[in-house]
Amino acid sequence: MDFILKVWRQNGPDAPGRLVTYEATNIPPEASFLEMLDIVNAGLEARGEDPIAFEHDCREGICGSCGMMINGRPHGPGRGITTCQLYMRQFKDGQTIVVEPWRAKAFPVIKDLVVDRSAFDRIIAAGGYISINTGSAPEANSILVPKEDADLAMDAAACIGCGACVAACKNASAMLFVAAKVAHLALLPQGKPERRRRVLAMVAAMDAEGFGNCTNEGECEAECPKNISIAHIARLNREYLRAKFFSR
């Protein structure tokens, strides 16, 4: 298959960027989107040109490294997949494909399609955990967890921290990311003692990073590669209200 690519090239956070056109030729339909970029890059490298920088690692949809806007959609067409799980057979032969980085104030561009997502780490550092030291845990089966709660917590915990939710949102809000962690821990008995402190600290950190607010339009849920439900945002809001208004 052949494609025309229009790829965002940008040398650094303060450098101007622009769309550059490349031809991707002889691409097998079984190739993933990233493998298609590998082929294009191999051609650039062989000619001594600077290849397109993009982030990737596991290439099986779990590490959360890859992510780019493909024809205006985070991770491209298709539901519940990351960019590395997108295959070229999803496109039409000869199609033009526009590839851009995540666009958000809190995610500055490092180079081309690579952005700095360390804001997510700082939000987790603010409270996205249960404060237990190694060695102080009780016997695992001493606290029973209803299967329904464990399953729901797992649905939320499946977040891979890729940032597609932020990229999809017109406000560049990180609510789905924060909600997934808050909900995962609030749903489990082990997470309840710290629920108040956690939600307040994580929301404050999220605001400090410059993410926008949530206006309930649901783009994040539609583009989340792990199909994380915005019901968790409702859960986050409840946790937040509960923490704000009902002190001990």
């Binding site: 249960i130 190694t134 845990a137 695992a140 967890v145 464990a150 917590a153 797992m154 995962h184 489990l188």
Partner: peptide
């Protein structure tokens, strides 16, 4: 024990 206490959502 440690992982359960950390909130790892193991199957139940």
């Amino acid at each position: 024990d440690q992982c359960v206490a950390q909130g790892v959502p193991f199957a139940r």
